[in-house]
């Protein structure tokens, strides 16, 4: 029981890590990023290539995360420009289609170029015992990374001027612009941050088991579900929703099977949109 519960929390933190990027890009840029999971895979692939080149695993992982961030900046500065020219519904639609196209582009390229790819990191100690429960070191490490990143993100948004700028744009883009904030520069920063977090999720997937090039769509969809349930503008909500859905998923997969578990997650997301579109667990950021 407790083991399943912890497993759910560990999974949930990874889901939150993916979803928070979708939340940030949607809240700040007004674009629902349907290629978010593909950024995670790109990060993983970059890390694996660096690892192959003979780098230290730690450096390779950092390099992979940076790779996802760099791709994020490029995409923000080129592909998404046409979307940013519009506002509101029009921008959402254009952004949705563009990122959907991007996700196919990345998937197609990676599956073609690295068909047999998989990324795995081996940790020196496979299991540790904490309070009588045997835990995988990988799970602990991944959760620790996620917690540190979330703490950093919260501190960044609360305490720094840039963070306050970001929150002001999430509140109201036009208002922020009138106060002399340049939304496009801040947007690039946030897209870079968000895609780097996706990169972290991709690399830590390699810690748990292995990361393959075909996992992009699954990452995107799980991230999207969590972001929707958490309220697509709320970072606290996303973190809570990730942990909740992670635990639900862990129990459901254990007791009723993976297909039903997935259907439960999807139905929760559907119901959230229909009943409380602002998010089941949404509080202001």
């Amino acid at each position: 029981m407790i083991a399943i519960f912890f497993d759910g929390i560990v999974q949930g933190l990874q889901l939150s890590l993916l979803a928070v990027g979708i939340t940030l890009i949607y809240g700040l840029g007004g674009v629902l990023n349907l290629s978010h999971g593909q950024f995670a895979v790109v990060g993983g692939v970059a890390a694996a290539l660096l690892l192959e080149a003979g780098l230290n695993p730690f450096v390779a992982a950092l390099g992979g995360i940076a790779g996802a961030g760099i791709l994020g900046i490029i995409v923000d500065r080129t592909l998404l420009l046409p979307a940013y020219r519009y506002r509101g519904e029009e921008r959402l639609l254009l952004g949705l289609i563009l990122t959907l196209g991007l996700s196919f582009l990345i998937d197609g390229y990676l599956n073609y170029k690295f068909p047999e790819f998989s990324l795995t990191f081996q940790l020196p100690v496979p299991m540790v015992e904490i309070g009588g429960i045997a835990m995988r070191t990988a799970s602990l490490a991944a959760s620790l990374i996620a917690i540190v990143i979330f703490a950093g993100l919260f501190a960044f948004l609360r305490l720094t001027l840039l963070g306050k700028t970001i929150r002001s744009i999430i509140e109201n883009e036009v208002g922020a612009e009138l106060c002399g904030i340049d939304p496009s520069r801040t947007r690039t920063v946030i897209v870079c941050l968000a895609t780097m977090m996706a990169g972290v999720a991709g690399v830590t997937q390699g810690l748990f088991s292995s990361l393959g090039t075909e996992m992009g769509p699954e990452f995107t969809i799980l991230g999207l579900l969590v972001a929707v349930v958490g309220g697509v503008r709320s970072i606290n909500g996303t973190l809570a929703a990730g942990i909740l859905l992670g635990v639900v998923n862990a129990f459901a997969s254990r007791y009723v099977g993976a297909y039903v578990a997935y259907i439960i997650l999807l139905s929760v997301a559907m119901a959230t949109i229909l009943v409380r579109p602002a998010g089941l667990l949404a509080r202001f950021t």
């Binding site: 592909l79 289609i97 563009l98 959907l100 196209g101 991007l102 996700s103 196919f104 582009l105 990345i106 998937d107 197609g108 390229y109 599956n111 073609y112 068909p115």
Partner: peptide, 13 residues
């Protein structure tokens, strides 16, 4: 072969 997914993406964009 596999590249058709990539072509879909490019076409869409």
């Amino acid at each position: 072969g596999q590249l058709n997914v990539l072509v879909y993406g490019v076409l869409l964009i």
